[in-house]
Amino acid sequence: MIRLENVSKAYRIRSGPRWVFRDLNLTLERGEKIGILGRNGAGKSTLIRLIGRVEQPTSGRLLTDMSISWPLAFSGAFQQSLTGLDNLRFICRVYGSDPVEAAAKVDDFAELGRYMREPLRTYSAGMRARLGFGISLAVDFDCFLIDEIVAVGDARFQQKCHDELFVKRKDRAMILVSHNDGYIREHCDRASVLAGGSLTHFTDMDAAYDYYQAHDRE
């Protein structure tokens, strides 16, 4: 279970505090897959970063008894100056997984070959996404936070992500964040729309999409 109780987040900017959202409530059970729809800048990534405990909420509580992944996104979570292998070892140590076993898995998934021993700053965006996703699969999580990362990469990468996440790990909980309803429709049990600083829950995808369209400008 993951439960958000009246979670709010504000950032201090030059002109004073800017509230991204206020008093969000959300409950996710074990194995449940939920999509969060919102346009650019609606606060989707901020929300998922709070759930992943990357940042602290300004107010409100977050309760959970599950292990939650870090937000799998285009960037973040890795050290550019370290090699892929050193990044992998670091994460294995932090999360208590076996680095040798993980290295084999990541090698198989990411297909980086010799580049595993090169610093991340020499990687292309696609290689970085493959490595990041591969490493997250090496750690066993109850809930995966996915911030549009699966939308990048070529067809082959997308197919692999699909197999790993939605076939092999279909019993896990997931929170998917996207501005694209197609992806959420395909993979989630229900959807919530983040617009105008508040979160509205729907069990019906079409209703969620209609609401999303109607509140596109907020």
């Binding site: 992943g52 990357v54 870090w70 973040g76 050290q79 550019q80 994460i91 932090v94």
Partner: peptide
């Protein structure tokens, strides 16, 4: 900063 992306760090 990028290390603190992981909740336990």
């Amino acid at each position: 900063l990028s290390l603190m992306y992981h909740r336990n760090v």
